[in-house]
Amino acid sequence: MSAALKVAAPGLFTTLQDRGRLGFQSLGMPVAGALDMLGLQIANALCGNPPDMAALELRYLGPSLLVEAESVRLALAGNAQADILAADGSVYPLSSWRSFTLKQGDTLRVGNTDAAVAYLAVAGGFDLPPFMGSLSTYTRAALGGFKGRALQAGDLLPLALPQAPAGGDRQVDDAAGLYGDGPIRVVLGPQQDRFTPDGIAAFLSGEYRVTQEADRMGIRLEGPAIAHTNGADIASEGIANGAVQVPGNGQPILLIADRQTTGGYTKIATVISADLPRLGGLKPGAALRFIQVGVAEAEAIRRRQQADLQALLADMRPAKPAGGLDLDALYRENLISGMVDAAQGGGA
């Protein structure tokens, strides 16, 4: 039997994502890739994988996965409700920001995610062929990942390793501090001159809410209208991750991982790279504001974030077994001998 994870329940929208399909936008191929690169890197580090290896991206509600392998090591990054249904019927609660080792017949069950996205990495990765150098799933064109689509019940995800690698599980502290809070930081442009001063002021001072029209391609916002100087249309041009596009109705759209390669609407600003992971976590109804920063400040913020990420990973430490006591560790402490010594009046 080939090592695999069997999808017992697929979750709401679970796809394989890595850093994306880079270098092909000139051919009309969207990048796709993980919405939250911080979460992807942390999940992979906990499994001992390269930082950009493909992992499962969980949207809102995670999957249930049955282990059809001798053993497998997984890691969950992002706050999510999860537990392990062991092969013997026992149920163990599972915390996030850690790896855990499951055996054949065990089932991982991931429920709601606190943010809109979380990541589940597997040690060694998935044994699937890349498309244009990436395993990222781009569902709009049905390519990449697993059959070009979100997971479905009954799918078998082939594993690259027949069993979990040697070594124990690891954990890190809650990584929420890496993401920051407060207004989303943006650099104005590239078409800021196509908006009135009042329109720019409305964008930078108003509160916007995420509408129900939010997916991996873009997030439509609702709030103060942003006025143009001479219409919303421009000659079609390339679109960066985090571009804030403003069509004729004056309501901004955040363009993210699955964005189109080119577009013909004015863009008032671009979200800085350090805040892109926050966009992936936005749920419908969430409120947000924007604040302007300069390019140099945006670069400094990104450098600090990367330094903080490396510090978090450097502080990675052994994790207790999921849902139970580490009996082997207790036995190594020689507690029984200490009890005997104490009963005889000696020192422990």
Rank of each mutant, 00 (worst) to 15 (best):
T137G: 01
D155H: 04
V31Y: 02
S99K: 07
Q25K: 04
L40W: 11
G206M: 01
K6I: 09
V210T: 13
A80F: 02
L178D: 02
N249R: 12
D308W: 00
M132K: 06
G231Q: 14
L56D: 07
Q292G: 03
A142K: 12
L66G: 00
P284K: 11
G177C: 06
P183F: 05
Q260I: 05
Y265E: 13
D328F: 09
N241F: 08
Y60I: 14
A287T: 09
V186I: 07
K147H: 14
L335M: 09
T14P: 04
L66I: 14
E297G: 00
L178M: 12
P224G: 08
D174R: 00
A296S: 15
I200C: 05
T15W: 01
G280M: 01
D308F: 02
Q344G: 14
D258T: 12
Q310N: 12
A225H: 03
A54Q: 10
D36W: 14
A75Y: 10
Q25L: 04
V340F: 07
G345I: 01
M316G: 06
E207H: 03
G263F: 06
N334Y: 07
D127Q: 10
D341N: 03
L288Y: 08
K320T: 05
P158A: 00
Q212N: 12
A115G: 15
L58I: 15
V67T: 02
M316C: 10
L120K: 06
L161N: 04
Y179P: 01
S90W: 05
N230G: 15
D169T: 08
Q305W: 07
M132A: 09
E297S: 12
D18Q: 08
L108V: 02
G346L: 12
Q41I: 04
V271R: 06
R185Y: 06
L204I: 10
Q251C: 02
P165N: 07
L279W: 00
Q41P: 07
V186F: 07
P183D: 02
D52E: 14
D181I: 02
G242S: 13
L5A: 00
F13N: 03
A257V: 11
G248W: 10
A115Y: 09
G180D: 02
E68A: 10
Q305R: 11
